[in-house]
Design a protein around this nucleic acid. Sequence first.
DNA 1: GTGTTTGCAAATGCTTTGCATCCCT
DNA 2: AGGGATGCAAAGCATTTGCAAACAC
Lengths: 142, 142
Amino acid sequence: MRNAKEIFEEYISKKKLKFTSQRNIILDTFLKEEGHISTEELYEKVAQKSPSIGIATVYRTLKLLTECGLAYERQFGDGQSRYEHSHEHIHHDHLICTGCGKIVEFENADIEKLQNEMAKKKKFKVYAHKLELYGLCHDCIK
Amino acid sequence: MRNAKEIFEEYISKKKLKFTSQRNIILDTFLKEEGHISTEELYEKVAQKSPSIGIATVYRTLKLLTECGLAYERQFGDGQSRYEHSHEHIHHDHLICTGCGKIVEFENADIEKLQNEMAKKKKFKVYAHKLELYGLCHDCIK
DNA sequence: GTGTTTGCAAATGCTTTGCATCCCT
DNA sequence: AGGGATGCAAAGCATTTGCAAACAC
């Protein structure tokens, strides 16, 4: 299985783009991150290693990572996009606690199967999906 | 079954807010609308009836309608929030064509059942969910 | 009357873009 | 060498907010 950097380099060269040190650092930092990171948060982590990198470059690189399928973009309704890596992860969905903001991931093959059946019925070819359940977690119910 | 205006008036009085002509017009306009309307689009429709209403009031009223459960807020990734009415509609999800932007609604009780089971397993009490399938519609596959 | 709401404009927050310079290839 | 990439600041959007005047109750 190709690793993330190989996928990125392949995408870069196929599009006749350039593999710069900034893109390398941003990719590494992104891959080390678990969970759902915002551009701002990623920028702060990147700036620790390389303070001269501008946030615009982080935005531009995150867009590239999304295009080549290494990152998933998600909007949880807090006014900014959040990203997570798709590589090395099986597909999963999210339970979001509206009390404390906690995000729990889950994965359910039966739901996916039903989704695909539904898409077929509506004559869609589905490439991606988002499923988010909003509610209160165990701690916040009290 | 209470109609939308009753629900809104009830919410307004419970919160000791005021039922103004602007809120009335915005609610009426919103209810006449089918599908997924953005704040800007709703503002334009409202302005046809009552040009003096400002867009800030539309934003504020839409927030109220969301709070009292009459509107659902959705983000389809085009950079703005879109709203649809929840009243008089059974719950449904969306198929979104990334080719032409078409949005098809569907409803599937089996998926909802699985979602609730999953929430229970993770000890969540779920109040809302969003399910969106992204892909190409029949016309765009060609 | 009094506290909320409104319209306006200014402010905010996230994201994108123009441009001169820099740097892969 | 040459075209894409970068950092910066400015621009762009959608959305929110401060405030004085207007209004609902």
